[in-house]
Design a protein around this nucleic acid. Structure first.
Lengths: 165, 165
DNA sequence: AATGATGGTTGACAGAATCAACGATTGAGT
DNA sequence: ACTCAATCGTTGATTCTGTCAACCATCATT
């Protein structure tokens, strides 16, 4: 039941025989279908950990930016501050990160990844890398680099906005 | 998987100064950030139409596959059958599509796009094209074609699954 | 000291996805 | 023909996530 890589007889989806119509013309459609699959794979690979959505990227940002405030984190991951509160609660409950009151501005919570948070993050990054490899092995190193560059150029159109993970 | 220092002096996000850390290594991250922006832009451009999520792609699939069943549609767009019921209700309520009982199998609902559904779809495709152009104008035609091809090659790793719009 | 802005928190609410269950219908096996 | 399992569409319960407004504590400006 393998579909041959190459020219398709028509713009359909090999197995199901469903035609895509004009949808097939759009880059956003291609981006989404791959990205959906990647996140499903990642979710499946980390299912037993009960990761609430946004926790992984939030922890990653905290680890990369020790002392970041919840507000800054919210903007960085593109989530509402109220959601960030829940996520940080979760992170603290799992001892993956901790809040410290900022000495200079006592309104702010400075966030830090704990040691186990760092270790946990490394594991998650490893599974993510494995997940991506399943798709990326289709490309050569040079093609991968090129893809990265093209995507970055596209994203530069959005220079001014937040990151929106 | 070695991380190669990119062109940027540091892996941060220009405006906000937030570092991405290892997140920056992953393709899925780049895909998602662009795709998120694209869908936000599209949502903003179609805000007044009150499009529920999944409606657009469902209508597109129905139009490209006259007589498709709700079950097939569900698998095609990667949504649960119960959600598809609601979407088709919505489509019918707006007179964009209609259900017909299949004469050969009276359990099935054969779905068809109405004329106004087709017209509506054309409009939506136009706005989507405009939305994408805002990002895609960063690339030459050749680069765009290359991007398309790379993405397709990546997706072929998922030959057997549904489309998951 | 008064005022307004900011950071974090809470709760009310809406949107969407998951899941189990159901009636109607079909198809396969006997 | 009859039984039984499977399929299609539908409904409802439940959960998860994100949006929003309100609130308190704190800071900055005057």
């Amino acid at each position: 039941m393998k579909r041959v890589a190459g020219k398709k007889p028509d713009q359909d989806n090999g197995e199901s025989g469903v035609r895509l119509g004009r949808l097939d013309e759009f880059i956003g459609f291609r981006l989404r279908r791959i990205q959906n699959q990647l996140s499903r794979d990642f979710a499946a690979a980390t299912a037993e950990r009960n990761l609430r959505s946004g926790l992984f990227s939030s922890l990653a940002i905290v680890a990369a930016n020790p002392g970041i405030s919840q507000n800054e984190l919210s903007r960085a991951v593109g989530l509402d501050k109220s959601i960030t509160v829940q996520i940080v609660d979760d992170l603290e409950g799992r001892d993956l990160a901790r809040r410290e009151r900022s000495p200079t501005d006592r309104r702010r919570h400075a966030l830090f990844a704990t040691e186990s948070g760092q270790a946990y993050l490394d594991e998650l990054f490893d599974t993510l890398a494995k997940t991506e490899d399943a798709v990326l092995h289709q490309l050569t190193k040079a093609e991968l680099a090129l893809l990265r560059e093209l995507l970055d150029r596209m994203y530069e159109a959005y220079d001014e906005q937040g990151i929106t993970l």
